[in-house]
């Protein structure tokens, strides 16, 4: 565990907590893409299947349980409790365009052709693009509430911090995992445009609004 990995995890944790609290306290999920949330639930479940096979640490297990739990709580709030506030019309990204290629890629490019390994690889590939329905929704409506921007910033920073963690581990521990690194770079790059807007607008107290 190094400082980059820890900050990455905390940033990730902060993101999922912000999201649940935002929906819970405002009693609304307006502006949030249910499709991205479904993809994240698939990511967590397929990646953390090792909860039942391998024990790494209490920290590791707790975080996995929290991510799966928060993800399902978010889906419950969006599709059941506060269903009426869910903005279907703007959440029109076709997730099969992300699911099909990531399934195929995981079957073709993986470290080992076993069920757990292919599912883990699939979850890494899917996570790298899972935010696209959300970013698509923001670009469609042309704006995002500041709390949604904070969520996106924390969620985007997490994989960026993991990239620093992987650079560190490559030198300090001789450890690297190419599949995760390449996907992590893709994932972080997808947020670049958003990061720019977040820093130039939201941090200056303005609403995140895309130029017309």
């Amino acid at each position: 565990m190094n400082i980059f990995r820890l900050s990455g995890d905390l940033s990730h944790l902060l993101a999922v907590i912000i999201l649940v609290l935002k929906i819970w306290t405002t009693r609304s999920c307006a502006g949030i893409s249910g499709k991205s949330q479904i993809l994240f639930a698939i990511v967590y479940v397929t990646r953390y299947l090792d909860l039942v096979t391998t024990f790494v640490s209490v920290y590791n297990t707790s975080m996995k349980v929290i991510f799966i739990g928060a993800s399902f709580a978010t889906i419950y709030l969006m599709y059941s409790k506060f269903k009426a506030t869910y903005d279907h019309n703007h959440d029109s990204f076709r997730i099969e365009f992300l699911l099909a290629p990531t399934v195929i890629l995981a079957l073709l490019i993986n470290q080992k052709f076993t069920v757990l390994e292919v599912l883990w690889t699939f979850s890494i590939y899917l996570e790298s693009v899972a935010i696209l329905p959300q970013l698509f929704m923001v670009s469609k409506t042309g704006e995002a509430e500041s709390i949604t921007s904070h969520y996106l910033f924390a969620l985007g920073s997490y994989r960026g911090l993991y990239l620093l963690n992987w650079i560190y581990r490559y030198y300090a521990e001789d450890h690297y995992e190419l599949i995760a690194i390449v996907s992590g770079i893709v994932q972080t790059v997808l947020y670049c445009d958003f990061f720019y807007l977040y820093i130039t607008k939201v941090l200056k107290g303005k609403k995140l609004q895309l130029p017309a």
């Binding site: 391998t54 590791n60 975080m63 450890h175």
Partner: peptide, 10 residues
């Protein structure tokens, strides 16, 4: 380089 799969990350 060590490329053994150790899934100790989240």
């Amino acid at each position: 380089k060590n490329t053994i799969i150790v899934k100790d990350e989240l």
